[in-house]
Amino acid sequence: MQKGELTAIVGINGIGKSTLLRTLGNVQPKLSGTISIDTIEINDYKPGQLAAKISVVLTEKIASKNLTSLEVIALGRQPYTNWIGTLTATDKQKITEAISLVQIEELQHKKCYELSDGQLQKVMIARALAQDTSIILLDEPTSHLDLYHKATILKLLKNIAHKTKKTILFTTHEIEVALQLCDKILILDKNTSHFNTPDALIAAKKFDSLFPKDTITFNPESGSFKVV
């Protein structure tokens, strides 16, 4: 994968999108194979070092909703703070940057239980940004959101990837939106997987076989799926 690119992982339910993402993020132990970042094996990193390389946005809800948005985002600085977690001027600046990139200035003093799903998702993205890692992994960042918010979040991610030169990888079921916005797409299929730009994948007819043909067909011109 290249720096500064937004990549989507797509595939049917249960194919292992989240498993792949959570394994990459070291959230769960790997089944087999090796994962390397900057040619160093992922398990050879100390927890603190890895935290400065990869940040994650997971599907699970945060445990305490009594935190303010700002506190959640500030926790993203933990890999860099001292033993008791004091925020330095640099930390505060990174937090402000993350907030302005995601444009949630007006939400920062609100408690998490006051936020809507879409707002909370933005806060979690800002938290990942504040962690200042070269790689951000997001597990279904657009589920439970309406079409407008789906597009907003993905455009935001694309913007961040291009602006900050971060590698952003996320799983999604919104293939149609992903086709329009992502730089690269990884299709997980039963036996094989394909990784390329959306146009190249459409040209190679890789989406046609994604779902059973008797139920759903793919229209390459409009980049959309149709129920038969």
Partner: peptide, 9 residues
């Protein structure tokens, strides 16, 4: 934030 987020931090 939860155990998984804590680990990622």
């Amino acid at each position: 934030l939860g155990e998984n987020y804590a680990r990622s931090l």
